[in-house]
Simulated scan of single mutants.
Amino acid sequence: MKTKKLKEQIAKELKEKFEKAPLVVLTDFQGMTVAESNALRRKLREVGAEYKVVKNTLMRYAYPGTPVEQIKDSFVGPTGIVFAYDDIVAAAKALKEFMDEKDSKLKFKAAVVEGKVADYNMVKQLAELPGREELLGQLAFTLKYPVNAVAWSLENLFTKLVTVLENIKAEKEGAA
């Protein structure tokens, strides 16, 4: 049995996570085995997210004053929480992949994305976006392209200039 002090500490840590995480997803994990739960935790950890299972009574002390308070009615029955901090797209993809597996017993309850309530379709749309690394690659290409275009144009210009000078030299040598 947990002491009152320990429960207060857990509620405080949860509140900090609710405030800090831009993506919080509530799930129903009823029927999942320990192995499945560990696989989910591993998959989320790989993308910088985490999965917690905490009693609903403790969560009721943690959500007041946080964006998660908007979905407080979903804290019913077995509830697992996904917290994503850095790359919310990668976390949404990992969660969606796990939920889409053939025998997955994990069910979506509710979510808060960047302080706004989101349904499962919104989380699926988030999962379909390009990941952080892919977006950074696209940005780098976009920033690099104009520089490459100028360099190619200058190179092309110098090649044409050399060709013109060689033709003039050839004409002068032929006239001499």
Rank of each mutant, 00 (worst) to 15 (best):
S37V: 08
M32K: 00
V150T: 13
P64V: 10
K124V: 15
V82P: 01
F108S: 01
S74I: 04
N121R: 15
A49E: 03
E155Y: 13
K124T: 12
Q138L: 11
A62Q: 02
K124F: 04
K43Y: 00
N56G: 12
F141E: 08
E155R: 15
G65Q: 04
V54T: 12
K72H: 12
L40P: 03
D119E: 08
D28M: 05
A35W: 07
Y85L: 01
F29Y: 15
E155G: 14
P130V: 06
T66G: 02
V89C: 04
L154E: 07
G48W: 09
T27C: 08
A39L: 11
K43I: 00
G80C: 08
L106I: 08
P67N: 13
G131D: 06
V54M: 01
R45S: 14
Q125E: 13
A35P: 05
G115K: 05
Q30W: 10
P130G: 07
G137R: 13
F83V: 01
F98Q: 09
K93Y: 03
P64Q: 10
N38W: 05
A149S: 11
E36C: 04
A49L: 03
N38K: 13
K144Q: 14
Y145M: 14
K107R: 15
A90S: 15
G131M: 03
L26A: 06
A35F: 11
T33F: 06
F83M: 02
A62W: 02
E128C: 09
A90H: 03
K96E: 10
F98N: 13
A118P: 00
E69Q: 15
V112N: 01
T79S: 13
V117E: 11
D87N: 12
L58K: 13
A35T: 14
Y85Q: 00
V150S: 07
R60E: 09
P64W: 09
Q138S: 09
N148W: 08
E133W: 03
R42L: 12
R45M: 02
V25A: 09
V147A: 15
E46F: 02
V147C: 08
D73E: 15
T27W: 09
D73K: 15
D100C: 04
A49K: 04
V25I: 14
A90P: 04
K109Q: 00
K105A: 08
G31T: 09
L106F: 12
P146M: 08
I81P: 00
G31I: 05
A84D: 06
L44I: 05
S153R: 14
A151K: 13
